[in-house]
Computed example of a mutant assay.
Amino acid sequence: MFWWRNEVRPGVSVAFTDTGAGNLALHVQDNPSEVMARRARLEQVIGLDNHGSGKRHFQYMDQVHGNHVEFIEGHGPGPTADAMVSAAPARPTASSGSAQPLAVMVADCVPILLVGTDANSSPVLAAVHAGRPGVASAVVPAAVTDMQRRGAADIAAWLGPSVCGSCYEVPEQLRAEVAAKIPETWSSTSWGTPALDLPAGVRAQLAALNVPVEYSGECTLENDSLFSYRRNSLTGRFAGLVWTHD
């Protein structure tokens, strides 16, 4: 069910699912009720329903390959965005006292989970979807900036599995256009054609912001236990997850 999972800071965990958790996306050719059942099972395994203030749910988003960041105060309809930030409410209530759990779905793009701490030592969380357009339009720096604007410091990042620079073949002109903005993305496939290294580009953007990368996942195309759109365009989506637990 999990490709990687860890408590990265006291009371904060991140995880990346694999094909064992099944497809978690509603926008692919799958039965919506089965997708929702898988999401519920995932929340049960993680223990979101054991939270003292009541059952919680991961917030998903309608990802559009842009750079819009949405602040999430509580679970609701998925926003149209490619990054979400959540934090403990300034005035906690009995039903809402911690940061909203967040999810990002991918099948080759880079899923980024960010964790920082505000002045009250409360976690500030972010989930980011960074495909080629998102990396080129700086969605990751936009998410970090939004976290910082909300008081987050000591931000660190966890990068989930994504297609690697040796496998992500693109036209030569496209490689040149993206690399003109983020030189670290310039790459070649293992068979010698133009490619983009999106994880390298994300790591470079984070390094420029002094955000350390604590984990960087493997290549989706090279691992059958992960969904990969490049391997099969009818594939499902796995998820990157970040949540707090009391």
Results as ranks from 00 to 15, higher is better:
17 T>A: 04
19 T>W: 00
19 T>F: 05
20 G>L: 05
21 A>W: 06
21 A>G: 08
22 G>I: 05
22 G>S: 06
23 N>P: 04
24 L>P: 06
27 H>Y: 10
27 H>F: 09
28 V>M: 08
28 V>Q: 11
30 D>A: 15
30 D>K: 14
30 D>Q: 15
31 N>L: 09
31 N>E: 09
31 N>F: 07
32 P>I: 04
33 S>Y: 08
34 E>C: 10
35 V>H: 05
36 M>W: 04
37 A>V: 02
38 R>E: 11
39 R>I: 15
39 R>H: 11
40 A>P: 00
41 R>I: 01
42 L>D: 02
42 L>W: 03
44 Q>F: 01
44 Q>G: 10
45 V>L: 15
45 V>S: 09
46 I>S: 05
47 G>Q: 12
47 G>N: 11
47 G>L: 10
47 G>V: 09
47 G>A: 08
48 L>D: 09
49 D>H: 13
49 D>M: 02
49 D>S: 10
49 D>L: 05
50 N>W: 03
51 H>K: 11
52 G>R: 04
52 G>L: 06
54 G>P: 14
58 F>L: 06
58 F>D: 03
58 F>G: 02
59 Q>N: 10
60 Y>F: 15
61 M>Q: 06
61 M>V: 00
61 M>P: 02
61 M>I: 00
61 M>W: 00
62 D>V: 03
62 D>H: 09
63 Q>N: 14
64 V>L: 00
66 G>Q: 06
66 G>P: 08
66 G>A: 05
66 G>E: 01
66 G>S: 09
66 G>C: 02
66 G>M: 00
67 N>Y: 13
67 N>S: 15
67 N>T: 13
67 N>K: 07
68 H>S: 09
69 V>A: 10
70 E>R: 14
72 I>T: 10
75 H>A: 03
75 H>Q: 04
76 G>E: 05
76 G>P: 11
77 P>D: 08
77 P>E: 07
77 P>C: 05
77 P>Y: 00
78 G>D: 12
79 P>V: 07
80 T>Y: 10
80 T>E: 12
80 T>I: 11
80 T>V: 14
81 A>W: 06
82 D>Y: 08
85 V>W: 00
85 V>R: 04
